[in-house]
Amino acid sequence: MNTDKKPTIAVLGTGLIGAPVALNLHKQGFKVHAWNRTAAKAKALVVDGVQAFDTPANAVQGADIIVTVLTDSESVQGVMQEAAPALKQGAIWVQLSTVGIEGIGTLAALAERHGLVFYDAPVQGTRQPAELAQLIILASGPVEQRAVVQPVFDAIGKRTLWVSEQIGGSSRLKLALNNWAFALTHGLAESIAIAKGLGIDPALVVDVVTGGPMDSGYFQAKAAAILAENYTASFSIANAVKDAQLVVDAAAQAGLQVGVAQASLRRFERVQEAGHGDKDMAASYLA
Rank of each mutant, 00 (worst) to 15 (best):
A155P: 09
Q262M: 06
T185S: 07
G187H: 06
V205A: 14
Q272I: 14
L246R: 00
A195F: 07
A251H: 13
A221T: 12
A183F: 05
D201A: 04
R267F: 03
A223F: 01
K158C: 04
A193W: 02
T232P: 09
Q272M: 14
D207E: 06
E165Q: 05
A240V: 07
Y231C: 10
L256M: 07
S284E: 11
A193G: 02
Y218H: 14
A233R: 08
L256C: 08
T232K: 13
A224W: 05
A176C: 13
T232Q: 15
F268I: 15
F153I: 01
V163F: 06
D201S: 11
A183I: 01
S234Y: 08
P202A: 10
V258C: 10
L198D: 08
L188N: 02
A244H: 05
S284W: 05
D243W: 02
L184D: 08
F153W: 10
S234N: 12
L161P: 08
E165K: 01
A183W: 00
R266C: 02
D280I: 04
A193Q: 11
G199T: 05
P202G: 09
S236G: 02
L227K: 06
V247F: 02
M281R: 01
S171A: 10
L177K: 11
G157C: 15
L198P: 14
F153C: 04
V241Y: 04
S171V: 13
D201Q: 02
S234R: 12
G217Y: 00
